[in-house]
Design a binder for these strands. Structure first.
Length: 498
RNA sequence: GCGUCGUUAGCUCAACUGGUAGAGCAGCGGACUCUUAAUCCGUUGGUUGGGGGUUCGAUUCCCUCACGACGCACCA
């Protein structure tokens, strides 16, 4: 781990050639690594907008100064060269002519694709109609010593794309665009909530007891306190403590960690938006999530985009609303007793050939049945409402049907995108449900969470009626960007070390 | 954890039932002052993911390990 991995002989040759040019640059007094700052007049996108109307052969009168990474160089003899320059905002062609550059033209021979340069000159339009910068001066700002992937096929090896994401970002522009879009989506969500009076808080990621969901936590340790610690698996319980404390509209957008399987929809750490609002309920959360998601879809231009299965993404209010039991009857032919009764559920699973582990809990069986029969049907945004209480230990019961809770999950493109409920604020009911989980845990169920008894104490001080919601931001970004894998919306997805 | 497929030059890919490991791009040298996958001529570059086995001979067949992709399992 402490040794730099070796490069192959062929690659070493390529690096040597580039180092030779670095030496030559230094010898000519243009050491790129000696430069500190470079004053840009703006970015490439601004230059494109400002010169939109420029006609063929026409030169702009005002010079600009740009900086970025060099794309392919096209040398035309000893006196002319074209290249592409890319910055975060876009790409622009450079035209470098001995007559324009004077002594600086000698530097062109010492450039490689991938170098970082600063250029100054005036925009013009070539006779083929491409906006181009006539370069008057050129400053190397960093030498790229390693060869980049080729210009046609780019970098497609998935392993290398994730391990060396920086190369992926340089070469595969759509990857950069997706990451920038992710940033815009998250900041738009934050702005949306801030504008409506929600207060953003930060709760601990290091917990003595990770609760609020059922998932195995990552384990770590404090040297100072000499105690074991767990990384949080949800922000739920701490955010509700904030509600108890008198914060009426709180949210947190943060990383949570679950020590579970990794697949197309799951990364061990991911970003969750959790929000709690006093004096509202699951209906309020439905309104909020619908409005927020439609808003974010508009920002990202997601509506109308074609998905991989050929369907067209639509984000129009109102989203469909189907009660859990009705959905199970409609698509699975299952009645209430096939679900809410332990034995009935197991029989139903056998009948529908849904595999469940021998020791699976009743809740687990019902969840499997739902996954097998309903989830595959939910392509357009759909709220599944009124969940069984056995699936929802932190949600308030429906007053007219205590076996169900005031909860919804929002499904989009066959994927769970949000989970919300009227928060259980009756400490005695909460204690009873925690106790049931503790009993399961004692019976050997390692999945059952260990109760957070202090949370009961918090409820005993009194928590107002509250609506809460959790939205997996990574999955939402996947849906809005049309990405099929969560790894493609994460800059640095977890990879095994080599 | 299980299964399938994959790993060949810096990158993208070839190499038939086992018979001297090739190409394009990149690089290097040369020609070219509006090219844009620039073009043209020439040319360097390999521990075929690691280890072991079978064989006269292994990129190819077998075993094993590593990593990855996909699926399954796990993830109330």
């Amino acid at each position: 781990m402490t040794e730099e991995p070796p490069v192959g002989a062929a690659e070493a040759e390529l690096i040597k050639a580039r180092r030779g040019k670095l030496d030559a640059l230094r010898a000519s007094g243009a050491d790129p690594f000696a430069r500190t700052a470079f004053a840009r007049s703006g970015d490439i996108a601004q230059v494109r907008v400002a010169n939109r109307a420029l006609g063929e052969g026409e030169h702009a009168s005002t010079p600009v100064a740009l900086a970025g990474r060099l794309g392919p160089l096209r040398r035309m003899g000893k006196k002319t060269a074209f290249a592409d320059l890319a910055d975060q905002s876009g790409r622009l062609q450079l035209y470098m002519r001995a007559d324009d550059l004077g002594a600086d033209f000698a530097l062109v021979d010492l450039l490689d694709r991938g170098d970082i340069v600063g250029v100054q000159g005036e925009p013009f339009r070539t006779k083929t109609g491409e906006l181009t910068l006539a370069v008057r001066s050129l400053v190397p700002l960093a030498k790229s010593l390693r060869p980049l992937p080729e210009k046609w096929h780019g970098l497609s090896d998935t392993e290398m794309r994730y391990r060396r994401r920086y190369v992926d970002l340089i070469i595969n522009r759509p990857v950069l665009e997706t990451m920038l879009l992710r940033s815009r989506i998250v900041s738009a969500a934050r702005r949306y909530l801030d504008d409506r009076g929600y207060v953003e808080v930060e709760t601990p990621t290091l917990m003595t007891l990770a609760g609020g969901a059922s998932a195995r936590p990552f384990l770590t340790r404090s040297n100072a306190l000499d105690i074991p610690l767990q990384l949080r698996i949800a922000t739920e319980l701490n955010l509700k403590r904030c509600i108890v404390g008198g914060m009426e509209k709180v949210y947190e957008i943060g990383r949570i960690f679950r020590n579970e399987g990794i697949d197309r929809k799951r990364n061990p750490e991911f970003t969750m938006l959790e929000l709690y609002e006093a004096y509202t309920d699951v209906e309020g959360m439905m309104d909020l999530s619908e409005d927020l998601i439609v808003h974010l879809a508009a920002i990202s231009g997601a509506s109308g985009r074609h998905r991989s299965d050929g369907s067209v993404a639509t984000f129009e209010r109102p989203f469909a609303r189907i009660p859990f039991l009705q959905a199970m009857r409609q698509w699975g032919g299952l009645e209430r007793a096939d679900l809410l009764d332990d034995g009935g559920a197991r029989a139903a699973a056998r009948r529908l050939r849904v595999d469940v582990e021998p020791g699976a809990s009743h809740a687990h069986v019902v969840d499997k049945l739902f996954e097998a029969t309903v989830e595959p049907r939910l392509s357009a945004p759909t709220f599944i409402v009124d969940y069984p209480v056995i699936l929802s230990p932190l949600a308030k019961r429906k007053s007219d049907d205590p076996e169900l809770v005031e909860r919804f999950e929002l499904f989009i493109d066959r994927m769970e995108a949000a989970n919300a409920f009227s928060e259980l604020n009756d400490p005695d009911d909460q204690r009873a449900r925690f106790a049931a989980q503790a009993a399961q845990r004692r019976a050997g169920d390692v999945e059952a969470p260990e109760p957070d008894w202090d949370f009961i104490a918090a409820l005993e001080y009194g928590m107002p009626p509250t609506g809460g919601i959790g939205i997996g931001m990574d999955r939402l970004v996947m849906l809005l960007c049309g990405e099929q894998s969560i790894r493609d919306v994460l800059l640095f997805p977890l990879q095994k070390p080599l």
